[in-house]
């Protein structure tokens, strides 16, 4: 009996391998395009809000959370008191595509693209400046605009005009 069982198992094994003939899990990248999942973590970019302004407010949470310290930015202030990153650099020779910056970003500005295969001859070419990072689009979140939710005034948006806000208080009134 044992012999027959062994032989049948042997046969089952052979059949298993033979069945695989003609199937393959390999994707011949780059000839065949990859089907990447939507939450794939590739190269980060800076997106714009639905009104076309930069989303980034230079809060520096991304650079704080970055485990490889590859993000460096300097905050600036526009004449309408809106914060923006004067410079924004990512050193992609250090980036590990962990996506923590995207998670940390409170304004949904930094978002990870599906681009992962980019190679350069020199390390210095991996340092992407803001011009190379800022895209003309809203990315994965088409409707979010941080300034509509937060209670700061801007040119074109007065106090009380944000979402879920009352009109400004009259502090001179002592009425109950």
């Amino acid at each position: 009996m044992r012999v027959w069982r062994n032989i049948s198992e042997l046969g089952a094994g052979l059949w298993t391998t033979l069945r695989q003939l003609g199937r393959t899990s390999t994707v011949s990248y780059p000839e065949e395009p990859l089907n990447l999942p939507p939450r794939w973590r590739g190269r980060p970019v800076l997106t714009r809000d639905p009104d076309g302004d930069e989303r980034c407010v230079a809060c520096q949470l991304c650079s704080a959370v970055c485990p490889t310290r590859c993000i460096e930015l300097q905050a600036g202030e526009r004449p309408d008191t809106r914060r923006y990153p004067l410079t924004f650099r990512i050193n992609f020779s250090r980036c590990i595509f962990c996506g923590l910056c995207e998670e940390a970003c409170p304004t949904l500005a930094i978002q990870l693209l599906d681009e992962f295969a980019f190679s350069k001859e020199h390390h210095a070419d991996f340092i992407y400046e803001k011009e190379a990072l800022l895209i003309d689009g809203t990315g994965k979140h088409p409707h979010y605009n941080f300034y509509r939710h937060s209670g700061v005034a801007l040119q074109g948006k007065d106090k009380g005009e944000g979402i879920n806000e009352k009109a400004p208080v009259n502090v001179r009134s002592n009425l109950p």
């Binding site: 695989q20 003939l21 003609g22 199937r23 393959t24 899990s25 390999t26 011949s28």
Partner: peptide
């Protein structure tokens, strides 16, 4: 390669 779901040298 084919038997192991791979492509082998191509």
């Amino acid at each position: 390669g084919f038997l192991q779901n791979r492509l082998g040298p191509n």
